[in-house]
């Protein structure tokens, strides 16, 4: 979608346009890398996830988005999660273990 894949420069725009429908959020990884996105409140966050995976170049199945300690599921939207302007979404990598 058009919302996805916005680059840092996109940040500035959303702020201006930020009115009713869109949010500027950032996705932070455990490395403290931050990627900013402007999303609609009603957009399913699956799109955000895939956009981030594309951007970072990782397997979409190997990353999980979390907001305030809760995993963001495919059906969630910014609205349903109560995301607000400037909120940060954590991205974590898949964990495995079994020895």
């Amino acid at each position: 979608m058009s919302d996805n894949g916005s680059a840092p420069p996109a940040d500035t725009k959303p702020k201006a346009e930020g009115g009713d429908n869109t949010l500027n959020i950032k996705i932070t990884s455990s490395n403290h890398d931050e990627v900013f996105f402007k999303i609609k409140k009603t957009t399913k966050l699956t799109k955000l996830k895939s956009a981030y995976a594309d951007r970072v170049g990782s397997d979409i199945n190997a990353i999980r988005l979390m907001f305030d300690g809760e995993r963001i599921q495919d059906g969630d939207t910014a609205e349903s999660l109560g995301l607000e302007e400037g909120d940060a979404i954590d991205v974590v990598l898949e964990q495995v273990g079994g020895c």
Binding site: S30, H32, R64, M66, G69, R71, D90, V92, Q95
Partner: peptide, 12 residues
């Protein structure tokens, strides 16, 4: 707490 709790706590 999910499995990322301790990861974040210990790493960040």
């Amino acid at each position: 707490f999910n499995s990322f709790f301790y990861q974040k706590l210990s790493e960040q």
